[in-house]
Amino acid sequence: MDKLENQRILASLIGEGEKDKSVDLLLEWASQSSFKEVIFNILEPLLVQWGKLWMQGKLSLAHGYLSGKVAEEFYLIASKNEEFMNSKAKNKGTIILGNIEDDFHPLGRRLVNIFATAAGWNIIDLGNDVPAEIFVEKAVENQAKIIAVSAMMFTTAKNILKIRTEIDRIFLSDKIKLAVGGAVFKLRPELVEEIGGDGTADNAIEAPALFDSLLLKCKG
């Protein structure tokens, strides 16, 4: 398998908007080698590159969306493959994921879901526009150690402070860690602390490493 050539072919197909053909091609390569090899040698290196370009504003919305969809569909198929599932990390725990109240920008959140699931996390995705108390309620109900919240804009990011307040109010700040993400935190890094976040990641593909580090800080 020529990794670089295959990456180039896949990049070109996604660039042309060919989502279904891209997934088919990945499946063909997986049948010739394995899901694990295709994911680690072709798909993820490309996603890392694109993630960086996305954060620099050098990747179109269409490209970002399609690459996420291709990854989502391929991971979904891979998750039904016994050999691949045996090779990946075992369940690391539960994460409550969502966009904070008044935020309707799901793209980043959905990518986090894909990468965190692939890394062995059980994700409960609450969707867009989720009130603070629901995040905490679901975390307690599902014994989740991490709440991961996405916000695109400063105005909506401020609503995350309500989650911090609620976690502290019920004395669970040692047991539930608050991960925050979204464009505004990249451009305004001091906001993570201002709204009481325990950590952030530069992009979706780095989110699982953040979750791993936050898990280590949880007590009990």
């Binding site: 908007g17 919305l61 269409a62 969306y65």
Partner: peptide
């Protein structure tokens, strides 16, 4: 031009997803 949906197919998929 700006969002990069060159054809209707990916644009439809994106919009219906969101």
């Amino acid at each position: 031009e700006y969002m990069g949906f060159k054809t209707s197919k990916p644009a439809r998929e994106f919009m219906n997803d969101m």
